[in-house]
Nucleic acid binder design. Structure first.
Length: 491
RNA sequence: GGCCCGUUGGUCAAGUGGUCAAGACGGGGGCCUCUCACGCCCCAAUCGGGAGUUCGACUCUCCCACGGGUCACCA
């Protein structure tokens, strides 16, 4: 074990007097929605107080390593505007920020803890059989009360061992959680968990406590599945004589009443949602409100606003079910709030996937789309009539609300075709004025004219825009050709 | 099974002893209108159950039910 001076130097590196939070993902190659929310809350807690947000990579599970996964994390965090102040890529005063690179530290601290009597070596065989036995009675573990001398001797002799936490057999432990309040448990219900594994690597639980302390983390934000091990963390901090951080345990994001969101069940990850046409800002905004409430009636928040008003007191204790319908709503709100130029740029690939004909202006189509698009991937199917007039039945010309029937439609098309041919210019104004005048002449409502024109032009009942816009974008020649086709159907 | 946590409309939720129990999504209806959408208006729908405490409980206490978490040399 290192001498006390070394430990003091480690302590001296720890930044004080600032809020410090950390997001500590395993590099799995994608971001769960639940993880994203945890990362967001973690980020907001730090930023709200002007503190530091730290990224730490938890890669101790070598078996689950995914190549390139760390880069995915950097990319995703940046996309989501969750910029970290310290991390593997940007460095910082308490690095390294990758757990495997911190490996030598943990044994030192485990030995320190043994020195203080809060941990001991256990030479027993792996204890998987205990599961079958049902209960683990640590009183039967002879290593628990083994003398330090014997322990040292057997270790020196090369006998394999794990290091376990020595938990008091009596009394209770109380910890405070920012969301759940004070929770008290009997120490007798806690087990002497393994801190250092047989292979010399720390368990997740131990590595976390050591790293969080050495990195000066003030608010430990994590999933509520760790609630039941929090008392053991407390005992660890106390055993070291360290300050206990604030715990913020967040309930999970669920797919339904019984199951968490999970990739395994086919639930979308953040990346999937983006691929499905959702916008990052909308996802962030929705996820922020999934299990947290600002209290007021506002629902649309920028990252700046979230930072301003975020409070741990608004985080709810119960799990929240992910509702894709509501996310669609947020997405449509964000789309509508965009500048037309931004939307056009974003929508163009989706437009061009359906409209190959370059004569049709993508920006003009985007303008029609912006107010009626919820998710970008909905776009192509709305535009299928541009490149090729669909097959359609003449029954489509019948529309009760505009009092349009096949006879009136035929009359309308017979009049509209020559009128369009004679128009001095092919603009919205000219096209509209032309149809309005026809309506006046016929003594009919505008809809009597526009319904059949739009049907003939598009060949479908629902279009992203009215007759005027559709005709304008199609261009005069194509419009006239389609109107003539419509007329034939009605003959 | 032990221990811990949770439970307001279908969903997200406000609420902290006295409210006709906010709001949003979704649903239904209507208006607007050249379709759809947008926008606007209206409607339906909630305090898991039972005992208490109290003049009065969604709010406090206890019990029950249901749900979740945890009980790994996984994180």
């Amino acid at each position: 074990m290192k001498d006390m001076k070394w430990f003091e130097e480690m302590e001296a590196r720890i930044p004080k007097n600032e809020v410090r939070t950390r997001f500590a993902p395993s590099p799995t190659g994608y971001m769960h929605v639940g993880n994203l929310r945890t990362a967001l809350y973690t980020y907001l807690i730090a930023r709200h107080s002007g503190g530091k947000f730290i990224l730490r990579i938890e890669d101790t599970d070598q078996g689950r390593l995914v190549e390139g996964a760390v880069d995915v994390i950097y990319k995703t965090m940046a996309q989501c505007h969750l910029e970290h102040d310290e991390g593997p890529d940007v460095g910082g005063p308490v690095g390294p920020y990758v757990q495997t690179e911190r490996r030598p530290l943990y044994m030192e601290y485990a030995e320190l803890l043994m020195e203080r009597g809060h941990a001991y070596r256990c030479f027993c065989e792996k204890t998987e059989s205990e599961e079958d036995a049902g209960e683990f009675d640590r009183g039967e573990d002879p290593c628990h009360c083994m003398s330090r001398a014997e322990s040292d001797r057997r270790a020196a002799a090369g006998e394999p061992f794990v290091i376990r936490q020595r938990i008091p057999r009596e009394g209770t432990t109380t910890f405070h959680d920012e969301i759940f309040g004070d929770i008290t448990v009997e120490n007798a219900s806690l087990d002497d968990q393994v801190l250092m594994k047989r292979d010399g690597l720390p368990t997740y639980n131990f590595a976390n406590v050591v790293d969080d302390h050495l990195m000066g983390i003030t608010h430990v934000v994590r999933g509520s599945e760790y609630l039941s091990s929090a008392p053991k963390y407390n005992l660890l901090y106390q055993g070291f004589g360290w300050d206990i951080p604030s715990y913020v345990h967040c309930s999970p994001v669920m797919r339904d009443a019984h199951n968490k969101m999970s990739k395994r069940h086919g639930d979308p990850s953040y990346e999937d949602l983006i691929a499905q046409g959702y916008l990052t800002d909308a996802v962030i905004n929705y996820v922020a409100l999934l299990g947290w409430s600002p209290g007021g009636e506002q629902e649309i928040f920028s990252m700046e606003e979230l930072t301003e008003i975020f409070s741990m007191s608004g985080i709810s204790k119960s799990p929240a079910i992910f509702d894709i319908e509501k996310l669609r709503y947020f997405n449509s709100e964000y789309i509508r709030a965009m500048s037309p130029e931004t939307f056009a740029a974003l929508a163009e690939p989706y437009i061009r996937s359906a409209v190959k004909n370059e004569r049709y202006d993508a920006a003009a189509i985007a303008a029609l789309l912006q107010q009626r698009t919820e998710v970008l991937t909905d776009i192509p199917e709305k535009l299928d009539f541009f490149d090729k007039l669909p097959e359609y039945d003449s029954e489509l010309f019948v529309h009760k609300k505009s009092k349009s029937d096949k006879d009136s439609a035929r009359q309308v098309l017979e009049l509209v075709i020559p009128a369009f041919e004679a128009l001095p210019a092919w603009t919205d104004e000219e096209i509209l004025a032309c149809m309005v005048k026809l309506a006046e002449d016929m003594g009919a409502k505008n809809a009597r004219i526009m319904w059949p024109v739009r049907i003939a032009a598009a060949g479908k009942a629902v279009t992203p825009g009215g007759a005027v816009e559709i005709c304008r974008i199609l261009g005069r020649e194509e419009t006239l050709a389609r109107l003539r086709t419509g007329l034939q159907k009605l003959a």
